[in-house]
Amino acid sequence: MVSVPIKVLIELFKKSTAQISDENPSEFTPASPTFFIWGLVYTWQLVFLVYSIVNIWRKTDDAFLYIHPYTLHAAIFILFIVNMLLNSFSLILWDRFQFGLPASVIYVMLATIVGTCVLDHIFLWQQRWNFIQLNISGDIWAMRFVALNGHAAYSAWLLVAASLNLTIWLKRKLPMNFEGWAATFSLTLLSIGFLKILYFHLKWLILGLHG
């Protein structure tokens, strides 16, 4: 019975993401071992889910932890589920050498996970004193590392993945004399995206500003 879903996965995905990337090189295509980062990112998301599930049974003097302090809002999980569904769809398209639509899908994924990061911070900021008063201030750091930083790392790598997909697609569409512009355009978007992520961290995570 265990072999059935494995067989389905083998039939669904013919090659690894690293193999497909190597077969479609661009000016900033990462080396195959770099795709190991995806394993770290997904492991981080798994830790977030485990932490969230464990909180269902944890209880404070006031209530169960998932009820109060209410930091892991339902909207966070809705965005996260949408992101995972889009992630699966983009991997299926990537496996079939479709690069334009996956780039668009990954940008939508990026928007959902950035929205998750914003909600992570807002609810943690609002409830931080409740954690301290309930003598579970360690969960503030757990939330920062497991949820907020995990989602932030995921968003940063999604930005790289979207730019890579966009570059490959543009190189296929542009005449040979203009192929270099594909990487230039994608790297420009990548730089703008990283600057926005940096600004987000400075404003929300370090300075604690909300205006």
Rank of each mutant, 00 (worst) to 15 (best):
F178N: 06
F178E: 14
F178R: 05
F178D: 04
F178A: 05
F178V: 06
E179A: 11
E179S: 02
G180E: 15
G180V: 00
G180Q: 03
G180A: 04
G180D: 06
G180S: 05
W181R: 07
W181S: 08
W181T: 13
W181A: 04
A182F: 03
A182E: 00
A182S: 13
A182W: 03
A182M: 01
A183H: 00
A183N: 03
A183K: 04
A183S: 15
T184H: 11
T184C: 14
T184A: 13
T184G: 11
F185Q: 14
F185K: 01
F185H: 04
F185L: 07
S186W: 00
S186Q: 01
S186V: 01
S186M: 09
S186K: 02
L187P: 00
L187Q: 03
L187R: 06
L187G: 06
L187A: 05
L187M: 09
T188C: 11
T188N: 04
T188A: 11
T188F: 06
T188G: 14
L189D: 00
L189W: 02
L189A: 03
L189T: 00
L189C: 04
L189H: 01
L189P: 00
L190E: 02
L190N: 15
S191I: 14
S191Y: 13
S191V: 06
S191N: 10
S191D: 12
I192Q: 10
I192Y: 10
I192A: 07
I192R: 05
G193A: 03
G193N: 00
F194R: 00
F194V: 02
F194K: 00
L195K: 07
L195D: 08
L195S: 09
L195M: 10
L195I: 10
K196F: 15
K196L: 12
K196P: 02
I197L: 15
I197T: 06
I197N: 07
I197P: 00
L198H: 12
L198V: 08
L198T: 13
L198C: 10
Y199D: 09
Y199I: 15
Y199S: 09
Y199G: 15
Y199H: 14
Y199F: 13
F200I: 08
F200L: 12
F200D: 06
F200G: 12
H201M: 12
H201D: 07
H201C: 15
H201N: 15
L202R: 02
L202M: 07
L202A: 05
L202T: 01
K203E: 14
K203L: 10
K203Q: 11
K203S: 07
K203G: 02
K203T: 06
K203F: 11
W204M: 13
W204G: 04
W204R: 03
W204D: 05
W204K: 01
W204N: 03
W204Q: 04
W204F: 10
L205V: 04
L205H: 04
L205E: 12
I206V: 10
I206S: 03
I206Y: 09
I206K: 04
I206D: 05
L207W: 08
L207G: 05
L207E: 08
L207T: 10
L207F: 09
L207K: 09
G208S: 02
G208N: 04
G208Y: 02
L209D: 08
H210S: 14
H210Y: 08
H210E: 06
H210Q: 05
H210F: 10
G211W: 05
G211C: 11
G211Q: 14
